[in-house]
């Protein structure tokens, strides 16, 4: 009886699991199959199995038709730069908010919380105008000069996303729960506020740094609307908008699946590697946010 119940539970879980896994597996498997095979396999379990004549043709086509490696490189640069800067900048503000007494602290905190509800889509349009008017500073002929606009660059995709109110809030919540005694002991030991941050708080806050790094990574890797607006040329284009190339003319689903699989690879790799961390951190972030 007990065993039967268990079997039933597993069967049900498998069914639901199939529903949730199918599109992802289908995408990956199809990327290795010629167009006709994709359609032929679609209606059977073969759709999510690596069976039949597997080929790398789709990938070859993707690499030929698009600068996917360039996009990939751009995405890696943008994502890593933003995440690293963000960890630093956001945790520093959270540190002053949660562990130092200063006038105006409360108002800044309230502002940070209020900013959490503004979705990126709500400000992209004015942001676009803003950055189109911001000049960049660069080297030219041995001197500092102001150059054109920010558009079509990597930094236009990095800098606006470094400071993030949600991540500041996550750091704030974590830091707030660390006993103040540590700071005071360190203060008596002669540490400056920055040294307290660097030597005491940061080493004690591994979990929240991991959480924010993961969430920020996801956010940045999957950027879509902003690069479409701010980056017209190929040079600075990241992976997600790049997929548009494969629509239009005549759609080759095999190639699309290959591209999609290729750009999903890093997220999946990170996800599977840090799976436990991922899940617990997102749950924590959600429940508190």
């Amino acid at each position: 009886m007990k065993r039967l119940q268990k079997l039933g539970a597993y069967l049900f879980l498998l069914l639901i699991g199939y529903v949730f896994l199918f599109p992802l597996l289908f995408m990956i498997m199809s990327s290795f199959k010629p167009e006709q095979v994709i359609f032929a396999d679609l209606y059977s379990i073969r759709a999510i199995l690596p069976v039949g004549d597997l080929t790398l043709d789709n990938y070859r086509q993707v690499f030929e038709k698009s600068d996917v490696l360039l996009y990939f490189r751009n995405s890696i640069l943008i994502t890593s730069a933003t995440v690293i800067l963000g960890l630093f900048v956001n945790s520093l503000l959270a540190f002053t908010l949660s562990r130092m007494r200063w006038s105006g602290r409360k108002y800044i905190l309230a502002a940070v919380v209020a900013l959490m509800i503004i979705p990126i889509e709500a400000i992209v349009v004015p942001l676009l105008l803003l950055v189109s008017k911001l000049p960049t500073i660069g080297w030219e002929q041995g001197g500092l000069v102001l150059m054109g606009s920010w558009l079509n660059s990597l930094e236009v995709q990095i800098l606006p996303f470094v400071a993030n109110s949600f991540f500041i809030f996550l750091f704030y919540q974590f830091f707030r729960d660390i006993p103040k005694d540590f700071d005071e002991a360190a203060e008596l030991d002669g540490a400056t506020p920055f040294q307290i941050y660097r030597h005491i708080i940061v080493p004690m806050s591994g979990p929240v740094f991991a959480t924010v790094a993961i969430l920020h990574f996801l956010l940045m890797w999957n950027q879509y609307i902003w690069p479409i607006m701010a980056v017209q040329g190929e040079d600075a284009r990241p992976v997600m908008p790049g997929i548009q190339i494969f629509f239009g003319r005549q759609t080759s689903w095999g190639e699309i699946m290959a591209y999609a699989s290729f750009v999903t690879l890093p997220v999946l790799a990170v996800f599977l590697a840090f799976q436990k961390k991922f899940v617990s951190s997102l749950a924590g972030a959600g429940i508190k946010g």
Binding site: P179, E184, A185, E187, L188, D189, G190
Partner: peptide
């Protein structure tokens, strides 16, 4: 505080959890 020549033992001890005893003692 650090220049007053005082040292304090806290109720919670406030030992830095990520440091060894040696590092804790030598932090100041």
């Amino acid at each position: 505080a650090s220049r007053r020549g005082v040292a304090m033992v806290f109720q919670s001890y406030a030992l830095y959890p990520h440091m060894t005893v040696r590092e804790n003692m030598g932090f100041g």
